[in-house]
C-alpha cells in the first residue's frame, strides 16, 4: 500500500529553535506518513524550556519495521532546518555526502551568541557551507515570507511546503491538506496559503 522508499529507513530530521512550531509541523508530517501506510518512529530531543533552546525531531520512515527514535550518527537523509546554525549542527552529526537539505536562512540568536560569549557566524558563509555539505539544498526564505503573510509563525508550514515542493518526501500535497484542516480549523486558509507558498518557493 505505501510507496517504495528511495531508502529504507528514510531518515528525516527537523531541527530548529523552541517556539518555531517545529514539533507541530513534524507531527503533521508524521501523521501524514502513517496515514499513507508507513511505519514511523518519531523521536525528539529538547530542553525543559518552552522557548529558545535547540529542538530536533527525528522521523524514521520505513515500509518494514520500527527503528530507534534516535538516528545513528551520519545517517541523516533529509534535513529540514528551520534555523541556519541548527541546520549546521545537524549536518555535523548526521550529514553524509547524500544528505539533502531544506533550510530557512533566518538566524535566531541564542542567549549565548547575543550575550557575547560567542558570535553568531556569518550567514552567507554558513549557507555556502551548508550547500557544500549537502548533495542538494533548497534555501527557503520562510520567515521573511511568513512576515509578509502577517505572522512569522507560518514559517513552519511554508518549510513543510518546501519539503513537498522539493519532492523528496513520499508525501503528496493532498495528504497535508486534511491534516492542516484538522490542526488549524480556524486558521486553515492562511496555513494552506503558506503551504502553497512553500511549494512554489522550492520549485522556483
Amino acid at each position: 500500500m505505501a510507496k517504495q522508499l528511495m531508502k529504507d529507513p528514510l531518515n528525516l530530521i527537523i531541527s530548529g529553535v523552541a517556539g518555531q512550531g517545529n514539533v507541530l509541523i513534524a507531527m503533521v508530517i508524521g501523521n501524514a506518513l502513517v496515514e499513507n501506510g508507513y511505519q514511523v518512529m518519531f523521536g525528539q530531543t529538547f530542553g525543559s524550556n518552552q522557548r529558545g533552546g535547540s529542538v530536533r525531531n527525528y522521523i524514521r520512515i520505513s515500509n518494514e519495521t520500527k527503528y530507534s527514535p534516535i538516528i545513528p550518527q551520519g545517517h541523516g537523509d533529509i534535513i529540514l532546518g528551520m534555523e541556519p546554525i541548527e541546520t549546521m549542527r545537524m549536518l555535523k552529526e548526521f550529514g553524509n555526502p547524500n544528505v539533502m537539505t531544506v533550510v530557512n536562512p533566518r538566524a535566531i540568536m541564542s542567549i549565548d551568541s547575543r550575550g557575547g560569549t560567542t558570535e553568531y557566524p556569518d550567514i552567507d558563509k554558513l549557507l555556502a557551507d551548508i550547500e557544500k555539505l549537502s548533495s542538494k539544498t533548497w534555501v527557503i526564505n520562510a520567515t521573511e515570507e511568513a512576515q509578509k503573510m502577517g505572522n512569522p509563525i507560518l514559517a513552519n508550514v511554508i518549510l513543510a511546503g518546501g519539503l513537498i515542493g522539493a519532492n523528496i518526501l513520499p508525501l503528496e500535497k493532498n495528504s497535508f491538506e486534511s491534516l492542516l484542516q484538522e490542526r488549524f480549523p480556524k486558521a486553515f486558509e492562511i496555513n494552506f496559503k503558506a503551504l502553497n507558498r512553500g511549494i512554489e518557493l522550492a520549485k522556483s
Partner: peptide
C-alpha cells in the same frame, strides 16, 4: 565528509542554552 568539518569556523558549534522565554 568528516574532514570538511575540520576547517569549519569555531562558532559553527555556537551553543544555544535554553533560557527564560521572551
Amino acid at each position: 565528509y568528516d574532514k570538511q568539518f575540520e576547517s569549519a569556523p569555531e562558532n559553527y558549534s555556537v551553543t544555544r542554552t535554553g533560557g527564560i522565554c521572551p
